[in-house]
């Protein structure tokens, strides 16, 4: 680690404050170019502790950078992960107040809920499907706390992978008997189709995203506990939204999820 404990805690306060005040800040690697991956996750962990100390409940985990093409673009071989909170949850069909956000974008995702704990290394699609209680359709609202969405991966990890809001909805389904790889997703903004994709866009198969999360956490001596909600990463591109927008996403076999931005 390149940063000392005090710096990590200060950066956590800085980023958590930026989120609470919906204020964009410069990416932190500008001031700390030497920070490493461990520092980045240590800052994210410190943000998690700050939130928990305020009474926030951690509602689940999320994966980011789950497209092979984007990983290659960024020169990495692993996705990144963060967490989602109780206050980030928005009911299906609900309103999202853009005043609490900086420059929100939406992406369609497949969410998993685990039935048993998953501990890497060695987790694969089979272990994940066997440990999955259900899958359900989701839309994640991401909101980088960095100016103009300009960032590098370490800054994003420290910023809890741009986690902001999420909407779960549609029709829950057992992970079995579902062709999750080729599951189609159609995103509409204000009635116009803005993205279509299949869930294979997420690391070839969304269960692979959960397996990689378990393996990345396992490398740090952690696990995915039973009953954990996991947002597995964007199936579609992230689409910018503003007040007045209606977003509706239809999922093959899983129903739809919608929300309004005000």
């Amino acid at each position: 680690m390149a940063l000392d404990r005090q710096t990590i805690e200060e950066l956590a306060l800085h980023l958590d404050g930026a989120e609470q005040q919906a204020r964009a800040v410069a990416k932190i690697t500008d001031a700390f170019p030497d920070m490493d991956w461990q520092d980045a996750y240590a800052i994210q962990d410190a943000i998690r502790e700050l939130k928990q100390a305020r009474g926030v409940r951690i509602a689940g985990l999320k994966m980011g950078l789950t497209s092979h093409a984007k990983m290659r673009q960024m020169g990495v071989v692993e996705p990144i992960h963060g967490f989602v909170t109780d206050y980030g949850a928005v009911a299906d069909g609900g309103e999202i107040d853009t005043r609490g956000l900086i420059h929100p974008k939406v992406e369609a995702e497949i969410a998993f809920v685990t039935r048993r704990a998953l501990r890497g290394p060695g987790c694969h699609v089979g272990t994940v499907l066997a440990a999955t209680e259900l899958v359900l359709p989701a839309v994640e609202v991401i909101d980088s706390r960095y100016e103009n969405f300009r960032f590098d991966l370490k800054s994003v990890i420290a910023d809890n992978t741009s986690s902001a809001r999420y909407v779960l909805g549609g029709r829950p389904h057992s992970a079995r008997g579902l062709d999750l790889k080729n599951l189609g997703v159609v995103m509409e903004r204000n009635g116009r189709i803005v993205a279509t994709a299949s869930a294979a866009a997420v690391l070839g198969h969304p269960a692979q995203s959960v397996a990689m999360l378990a393996n990345m956490l396992g490398a740090r001596g952690r696990e995915i506990p039973a009953g954990t909600l996991i947002l597995t990463g964007g199936v579609t591109e992230a689409v910018a939204v503003e007040a007045g927008d209606n977003v509706n996403v239809r999922f093959q076999h899983l129903g739809s999820v919608s929300m309004r931005f005000v």
Partner: peptide, 23 residues
């Protein structure tokens, strides 16, 4: 549900693009 049928296109084993019927 033809509009929601997902399509995955793999080129040499790598996902090259994905889409759905509504496209």
């Amino acid at each position: 549900e033809l509009g929601l049928v997902g399509m995955t296109l793999e080129l040499n084993g790598e996902i090259a693009s994905t889409g759905a019927g509504a496209a």
